[in-house]
Amino acid sequence: SKVEGSRALLKKLFLSRISKALVPGVSNEKLLCQLGFKGEIIKTHGVGLYNRNRRVPFRALHEDAKKFLYVGRLSIEKNLKSLITVFNDCPEWILEIVGFGPQEEQLKLMAKKNVIFRGAVKNTDLLEIYQKSDVFVLPSDREPWGLVVEEAINNGVPVALSSRVGAAEDWVGIHKCGLTFNPDDIDDIKHTLDVIANKEVNNDFRRRIQGVDFDYIEREQVDSFIF
């Protein structure tokens, strides 16, 4: 988000009239501070309650990761062309894409056979898809938070996230549940997926996920709206 120029001035003017702000995580809090917000900031630890599993058993990989997953809209800001370009050059990897959107036909035309489009999936069926994946990938050019990141981690799956995903500083920086990459750099995306595909690295992230207290995070999220 712009913190300089005419847009930033409009944001600062708007924020000057606000006394209290609720933000999902660290990166959003930093943005408000960069814009000179003087009011109270409350972290909500997310953007909403999702269909949460109580505890997914630890599943170790016995070989390097091959099954990657994306869940979300098929639209330009999600940067899926760059992600598919990586998988077109890595036929040993499989990318499952769950969702639909304006870029669907264009993406299908450019993708090779190792990229599978699953379309819309019921929420009740999505949990199993997460759990059968080795890595969840979100390559967005811009993403204020990313509820799907929490869903993937809650289902025991390490994440590879664009550095512009709002949830990255919390789930990668603090909880250490995955890695980030530069969404503008195809080589960096490929390198990051190579690293997290390594079974030792991937299993280390899976062990860290087992230590996340999802009950506590959910309680904190609910409590943050009670004031």
Rank of each mutant, 00 (worst) to 15 (best):
S1K: 10
E4C: 11
E4W: 13
G5Q: 08
G5L: 07
G5F: 08
S6F: 14
L10C: 15
L15N: 12
L15S: 10
I18D: 06
I18A: 08
I18T: 09
S19D: 15
K20C: 14
P24T: 05
V26M: 10
E29C: 04
L31E: 07
L32Y: 06
Q34N: 08
Q34C: 10
E40D: 13
I42F: 02
I42A: 04
K43V: 09
K43I: 08
K43Q: 12
T44N: 02
T44L: 00
G46T: 02
G46A: 05
G46M: 04
V47P: 02
G48T: 01
Y50F: 15
P57I: 02
F58R: 10
F58P: 00
H62W: 10
E63F: 11
A65I: 05
A65T: 05
V71Y: 04
G72C: 04
G72Y: 02
L74D: 06
L74K: 12
S75V: 11
S75H: 11
K78F: 04
N79S: 05
V86P: 00
F87S: 03
C90V: 10
C90W: 09
E92Q: 09
L95Y: 06
I97S: 04
G101V: 05
E104W: 06
E104T: 12
E104V: 08
L107Q: 03
M110Y: 07
K112D: 11
N114C: 06
V115D: 03
F117C: 10
F117N: 11
G119L: 07
A120V: 15
N123Y: 14
N123L: 14
D125C: 11
D125G: 06
I129L: 06
D134Y: 00
S140L: 07
D141F: 13
R142V: 07
P144G: 15
W145S: 04
L147G: 14
V148C: 09
V149P: 03
A152L: 03
G156C: 06
V159N: 02
A160Y: 00
L161Q: 05
S163C: 05
R164V: 10
A168R: 03
E169R: 07
G173R: 02
H175W: 11
G178K: 01
G178M: 00
L179R: 06
N182C: 12
P183R: 06
I186E: 08
D187Y: 13
H191M: 15
D194N: 12
V195L: 12
V195I: 13
I196A: 01
I196P: 01
N202K: 09
N202S: 14
D204L: 15
R206Q: 01
R206M: 01
R208G: 09
Q210D: 02
V212G: 02
D215L: 13
D215T: 09
R219T: 14
R219F: 14
V222D: 08
F225T: 05
F225L: 13
F225K: 04
